[in-house]
């Protein structure tokens, strides 16, 4: 299609405009994070205040919060991805009674908002003594990720070549060997996408850790940030530095593996 130079130039103007709109607020928080902590510090002249991050890490206790987040995210990723691979395998390549109904049950979990079950879940977990523990914070999130993960892995196993599975079966490989020695290695890209999305959702989750740890014993990074904002109304620089720290792990992964994030979130949303 022939297009004029004007149209091409218009495109760049539009793209640059929207890129700036997106980057603007991010730039604001990053520049605040490197900015002076108070007016008296500002008078000493212009400088990049890298020490804000160290101070937020210790004084703002972001080091502690991020450690909690890493532990919770690790538990959720391991449990959710393992369960999803196994369940997706069953739905993707096996025929069995009740598969349609059971799969619909998993789809329900993708659509139902956390708000539908968080209140009774909290009180039942409290009776079991699981609130204010990493398990109380992690397991409900694992359950939510399993809903999406099963759906996601099923789609992968369905697309995997049946002839490979047939050939392996004729060689006498059992279903478990076919899964771990053939399908999982070939499916690494799909599994990596699932790992990344699960990690991101867990890292960024707010409502579940807020409700499940009312005493604040298991305070994940986003919660720590919200708490910090409520506690220290003066320290804008430390708050901004904390915000940058909280966002950084996922943003770094996104920069290096953005294809997985974008295709995962877009394809994952396109229902069959």
């Amino acid at each position: 299609m022939k297009v004029s130079a004007l149209e091409r130039a218009t495109n760049y103007v539009v793209l640059v405009f929207f890129a700036l709109v997106v980057l603007g607020p991010i730039g604001v928080i990053v520049s605040l994070a490197f900015g002076p902590e108070s007016a008296s510090v500002a008078r000493e002249g212009f400088a990049l205040h890298v020490e804000n991050f160290a101070e937020a890490w210790v004084v703002g206790r972001f080091g502690e919060y991020m450690t909690s987040s890493v532990i919770v995210a690790a538990i959720v990723v391991v449990i959710a991805v393992t369960c999803s691979i196994l369940a997706g395998y069953a739905f993707g390549v096996m025929r069995f009674r009740g598969s349609g109904f059971l799969f619909a049950l998993f789809l329900l979990g993708i659509m139902v908002p956390t708000e539908a079950f968080i209140v009774p879940l909290f009180f039942d977990m409290r009776s079991l003594g699981l609130t204010n523990t990493v398990w109380g914070v992690a397991l409900p999130q694992a359950a939510m990720s399993i809903a999406f993960g099963t759906y996601w892995m099923r789609a992968y196993f369905r697309s995997a070549s049946l002839s490979i599975i047939e050939a392996a079966r004729l060689d006498g490989a059992g279903s478990f060997r076919i899964l771990w020695q053939i399908l999982v290695p070939i499916g690494r890209p799909a599994i990596l996408t699932l790992v990344l999305l699960t990690f991101m959702w867990t890292w960024n989750e707010f409502l579940i850790p807020l409700v499940m740890s009312p005493s604040g014993t298991v305070r994940t990074a986003p919660l720590g940030l919200a708490f910090f904002q409520g506690q220290y109304t003066q320290g804008t620089a430390l708050l901004a530095a904390g915000a940058v720290l909280v966002a950084l792990p996922v943003v770094v992964l996104y920069i290096f593996l953005q294809r997985h994030f974008i295709t995962g979130m877009i394809e994952g949303a396109v229902r069959e």
Partner: peptide, 20 residues
């Protein structure tokens, strides 16, 4: 990559930025 960026940033971080 830039346009999609807000999707991967924790909403709490976004909220703190916009509050400022």
């Amino acid at each position: 990559t830039v346009l999609f960026l807000p999707q991967v940033i924790a909403m709490v971080v976004v909220a703190v930025a916009w509050r400022q």
